[in-house]
Design a protein around this nucleic acid. Structure first.
Lengths: 151, 151
DNA sequence: TTATATTAGTTGCATAACTAACTATATGTC
DNA sequence: GACATATAGTTAGTTATGCAACTAATATAA
């Protein structure tokens, strides 16, 4: 019997990601309570642009784990809210580089604070060691399912 | 400084749930490759009905971590595919009890097997102890954010 | 240099999520 | 019994997801 055999009844709770969902919902709520009109999905894109502005849509999709269709529409919505602009690359005109606008810049500080607050709420009474194990395991799960595409 | 302070750059990967997403996508793919036409969201509802048939929509929503509007539409779609039927409760006619049809019953075995297969793919080289820590931490994260609704 | 293949992004279609407002049934209080 | 309140479920509106088919631009190969 494999080392990783689950009792069937336990499977769903592992797959379900209820904790992830709960964190996302709480962060969204904290955004809303602070009067921020952005979704956490939009924020996930802004987050990567604050780290490195002017990424291509494809690269943004990779970093936020989305396919290109989802990325297209997320950026459509961000553009509608005037938080980013698309600029065709001069080297390769197939590529759209995505840049933050001045409207987006002041959101960085407040959303970082709200994300920190949310994580503190989520991680009450959970030790640093436990968090490290979780991060490590989830990374390995991700790698198990994506590095080799054997299906 | 709090015990749970994160370096900012690490925040997103924790919130994002990329591992959860990857597992869900792989399970969906495994369903599709086996010729099953159901979504994992639909499967999550069937999963609970196989454990206990005839639950109310609200109870199904609780067990699958959905609000009632989402539950309504999920069951609409399951009904369209003739996998479940709604039966008004005789005791309280506001309540819809949801029952599996004969069409749904043969799906149980094959989807359990595919879920097991998916979890084995996901959890390669991850020890039982690590899995226990992850499950325990995620449960506590969930509890931290839901037991007391202090926002 | 022309034909073919690849790549980045968009669009159509279907499912699903959440909020808020709504309907219908039950319950509680006077 | 009548009126207010609570509860279960539905509907409308918006955003997001994924797949597949498409366009436009670039790269490769003959």
């Amino acid at each position: 019997m494999s080392n990783n055999q689950f009792k069937r009844g336990e499977l769903y709770s592992v797959i379900n990601g209820m904790a992830t969902t709960a964190v996302a919902r709480r962060l969204q709520k904290n955004f809303r309570n602070a009067g921020l009109e952005i979704t956490i999905e939009q924020w996930s894109v802004l987050y990567h642009l604050w780290k490195e502005d002017g990424l291509s849509q494809l690269e943004l999709g990779n970093r936020t784990f989305r396919d290109k269709a989802s990325t297209t529409r997320l950026i459509d919505n961000l553009e509608k809210q005037e938080l980013v602009t698309r600029v065709a690359s001069k080297d390769d005109r197939r590529i759209n580089l995505v840049y933050l606008t001045d409207t987006a810049k002041p959101l960085q500080q407040i959303t970082y604070e709200l994300a920190n607050k949310t994580m503190n709420e989520a991680l009450q009474n959970i030790s640093k060691d436990e968090i490290e194990v979780v991060k490590n395991v989830l990374q390995r799960v991700y790698d198990n399912l994506t590095n080799k595409d054997l299906v």
